[in-house]
């Protein structure tokens, strides 16, 4: 697909990249409540669809939010996931996992006044227990809204590259 839109200017681009770095820092520090309250908009659609491996000639449409999806959450549902992690009774996160995020290839476009479509690549590196290591790569398609209290994401589509997820679960936020 040829991109005909013009990317945002340097200053806005820098602001968005800085926002992502701050977001990642909260997640890495397990400040899930702060993360949720700071960066998630109330009209969020947090979506990780399932893409089958199909022949190139296959004309069936791509998945919609009505189809099977690993994540398909609204605001309250995402909040419940945060609440669960903070109950103190998620045994598999005690001792906690160590998760690092690497966000690259950030491209941002203005789609409406104060609203931006942002593409990025995310590499997630998860260490658990003594010697469990999991690595995931994802393409991320965000829609951000610039508000008085910073950027809020109201649409996040996560395209995980692996057809067979190489991990025991994907219960972490990206």
């Amino acid at each position: 697909m040829t991109e005909t839109r013009k990317p945002v200017g340097m200053e806005l681009h820098h602001a968005i990249v800085s926002h992502y770095s701050a977001e990642v820092r909260m997640l890495q520090n397990q400040q899930y409540r702060e993360w949720f309250d700071t960066v998630i908009a109330e009209d969020i659609h947090y979506w990780m669809p399932v893409y089958e491996q199909r022949y190139a000639r296959d004309r069936r449409p791509d998945p919609t939010p009505g189809d099977a999806a690993i994540y398909n959450d609204d605001y309250a549902e995402l909040q419940q996931r945060v609440d669960r992690l903070l109950t103190g009774q998620v045994w598999m996160e005690d001792p906690p996992s160590r998760i690092r995020y690497f966000v690259t290839n950030v491209e941002a476009f203005e789609i409406a006044p104060f609203e931006f479509e942002v593409f990025s690549n995310v590499l997630v590196h998860r260490n658990r227990r003594q010697n469990e290591v999991y690595v995931h790569t994802l393409g991320r398609e965000d829609k951000l809204r610039k508000t008085d209290s910073g950027f809020k994401v109201f649409s996040r589509k996560l395209n995980i590259d692996a057809r067979v997820v190489q991990d025991k679960n994907l219960y972490f936020f990206v």
Binding site: A69, K168, N169, L170
Partner: peptide, 17 residues
Amino acid sequence: AIRSFGTAGTLESDDGE
């Protein structure tokens, strides 16, 4: 069903461990 017992399920993720 997927929210509870899918790959990122709220219950499934307890079981795999």
